[in-house]
C-alpha cells in the first residue's frame, strides 16, 4: 500500500517535470530564455508581501469555485456551467447592493445579504442545468455551456441597459459602489481577510462533508455508479440536484467576492475565467479535497507571477495558462500510463 502511494507520487512528479519541459520547449521555440521567464514568474508572485497578497486575492475565488466543483465532480458531473454560475452570483450580489445601498441598513448587513443573494443566484443557475439534466435528459455539459452564454448576455444587457452608468454605458462596468459597501480590506493591500476566511472556511467544510458525512458518501456513490446507488436506496435525483446546488452556491459566492472585494461593481468579464481554471484544479486533485488549497495557491501564483511577463520579456501573460493546461494534460496522461502499467503487472485470472 505504501509502495503504491510512492509510485503514484512518482508519476505525478514526472507529470510536473514533463509539463515544465513542454512549456520550456514552447519558450525556446519563441526564442525566450526559459530561466528568465520562470524567474520572473517566481519574482512576480512571491518577491514582496504586496505581490504575495495579490496571489491570495486570486487564490480566494479559485479556492471557492474549486471547492464547489469538487462536489459536482464527485457526483460524476461535468459542471461546465460554473462560469455562468459565478456570473449570476455577481449579478445577484450587485442587484441586492444596488437595491439596499441607499437604505438605512448597516453596511455590514447589506454586504452579508448581498453575498447570500450571490450564493442563491449561483445555486439557482446551477439548479437550472441540474433540472435540465435530471428531468430533461440534457447533458450538463451542453446545458451548462448554453447557460454560460445566457449569463454573459444578461451581464452585458444589465451593464449597457438598466444598470448603466449615469450618462453612457461602458465596458468598464456599472457605477462603483461606495467604500462602505466594500468587503473590509487590509489597509494598503487589495486583500480582504474576510474573503480569505470564507475561502478557507468552505474548503474545510467541503473536506469534512465529503470525507465524513452520509451526504458526501452518497454524492460519491451517485458519481461512481448511479444505477447501483439507486438500487441501494440512495435518492439519486435529489443528490444530483443537491450537488449542483452546492457547487452553484459556491460559484455564486465566488462571484459575490469578485463584486464586493475585488471590482466593487459588475463588469462584463466578472468571472475572470476562474470557473474554467477551477475545473482544471478539480481535475488535477482527483477528488481529494486536501489538495485543492495547495494546487489553487500554485495556480494563483502562476497567474499573478506571469502578469509582468509582457513588460519585461515581451511575452504574453497567457504563459501561465499554457503551463496550467499542459500540467493537467500530463497528469491525466501519466495517470493513464500508471493504470496501464499496474494492470499489466497485476490481474489474476
Amino acid at each position: 500500500m505504501m509502495k503504491k502511494r510512492w509510485l503514484n507520487l512518482g508519476f505525478q512528479l514526472s507529470a510536473l517535470v514533463l509539463a515544465l519541459g513542454f512549456t520550456t520547449l514552447i519558450l525556446l521555440a519563441t526564442k525566450t530564455d526559459p530561466w528568465q521567464a520562470y524567474k520572473y514568474i517566481i519574482i512576480g508572485s512571491i518577491s514582496s508581501l504586496r505581490k504575495f497578497t495579490d496571489v491570495l486575492v486570486s487564490f480566494v475565488p479559485l479556492l471557492l469555485v474549486s471547492s464547489g466543483l469538487l462536489v459536482t465532480f464527485s457526483a460524476g458531473l461535468w459542471n461546465i456551467g460554473v462560469e455562468g454560475q459565478i456570473t449570476l452570483g455577481a449579478i445577484a450580489t450587485t442587484w441586492v447592493l444596488r437595491l439596499l445601498q441607499d437604505s438605512s441598513l448597516a453596511p455590514g448587513l447589506i454586504i452579508a445579504l448581498a453575498m447570500l443573494a450571490g450564493m442563491l443566484g449561483g445555486a439557482l443557475w446551477a439548479s437550472l442545468a441540474g433540472a435540465l439534466k435530471t428531468y430533461g435528459g440534457v447533458n450538463e455539459i451542453f446545458g451548462g455551456l448554453g447557460l454560460n452564454f445566457v449569463a454573459t448576455a444578461l451581464t452585458l444587457w444589465l451593464i449597457f441597459g438598466p444598470w448603466k452608468r449615469p450618462g453612457i454605458g461602458s465596458m468598464s462596468g456599472t457605477e462603483p459602489f461606495p467604500n462602505t459597501l466594500w468587503l473590509p480590506m487590509i489597509s494598503g493591500f487589495r486583500l480582504s481577510l474576510w474573503g480569505l476566511g470564507l475561502g478557507v472556511f468552505f474548503i474545510i467544510l467541503i473536506y469534512f462533508l465529503m470525507k465524513g458525512t452520509y451526504f458526501g458518501l452518497r454524492i460519491k456513490a451517485v458519481g461512481k455508479n448511479l444505477k447501483a446507488a439507486y438500487l441501494l436506496g440512495v435518492p439519486t435525483t435529489r443528490y444530483l440536484m443537491l450537488a449542483f446546488i452546492l457547487g452553484g452556491a459556491l460559484a455564486g459566492l465566488t462571484g459575490a467576492i469578485q463584486v464586493t472585494a475585488v471590482y466593487h461593481r459588475l463588469i462584463p468579464s466578472i468571472s475572470s475565467g476562474y470557473g474554467f481554471l477551477g475545473l482544471l484544479v478539480a481535475m488535477l486533485v482527483n477528488f481529494q479535497a486536501i489538495w485543492v488549497a495547495p494546487i489553487a495557491l500554485f495556480f494563483a501564483a502562476l497567474n499573478i507571477g506571469s502578469i509582468q511577463l509582457p513588460i519585461v520579456l515581451k511575452l504574453d501573460s497567457t504563459l501561465s495558462g499554457v503551463l496550467q493546461g499542459v500540467l493537467v494534460l500530463f497528469v491525466l496522461l501519466m495517470d493513464g500510463v500508471r493504470q496501464m502499467i499496474t494492470r499489466r503487472s497485476g490481474g489474476a485470472s
Binding site: A221, K224, N225, K227, A228, L231
Partner: peptide, 9 residues
Amino acid sequence: LEEGMIPGL
C-alpha cells in the same frame, strides 16, 4: 459490478 455495486467504494 454494473448495477449491484459501486466500484471504487
